[in-house]
Amino acid sequence: MSLFWFVIRQLEEIEAMATSKKVITREEWEKKLNDVKIRKEDMNKLVMNFLVTEGYVDAAEKFRMESGTEPDIDLATITDRMAVKKAVQCGNVEDAIEKVNDLNPEILDTNPQLFFHLQQQRLIELIRNGKVEEALEFAQEELAPRGEENQSFLEELERTVALLAFEDVTNCPVGELLDISQRLKTASEVNAAILTSQSHEKDPKLPSLLKMLIWAQNQLDEKAAYPRINDLATATLEDPSV
């Protein structure tokens, strides 16, 4: 068989595959959408779960009043959790550690990695504030012993101490440790640990559901052409591309 005919065959096959996809019109699809009943109270729960998990405590409290939705966690604990998170975000790591221990001493006891990351953050803050001597002392006394227990801790410690070796830390290879994103990373790690200790999921459900939607649409793309929602932010239904 010549190459020409081979290519033609291939093209035909591709075309056949394309046409064998089921096409679902907008009208059919909208009818299916209408048949789906989503309960208001379930949506309220989803929103409450978001407010609670992300720490919007005042909004959660108000939402409870405005919608009658009960939060799935004691709202008072959110305030404490947010105080810890905020302390880390502002660089008051010592304060944060104390607050976590007030909340539940088991959190740090059972979570050596988190404790190490908090101590590491403390070291970073000392270096940021130019307290070189204090930083060295802290690294040697508090962090190095932990590094002996765990190789990855040791590497992290060395990486952090390396900050001291550079005059212009903002342009050094480990400069990212001084970035605000490092604080946010540590803060969200503490946040997650506290939530887990309160037997609450560490992530809100809404983002997972949105990811499920993206996944489900991708999966369905293989079998059918149908009206998609491409822009989650506006939930606009697009016409099926045929």
Partner: peptide, 22 residues
Amino acid sequence: HSYLERLLKQLTVCYLQRRSLN
């Protein structure tokens, strides 16, 4: 329908449709 409701409906229908084609 809020955006949230539309997204949840879309999600539900996608799952159902995928199943029925499977």
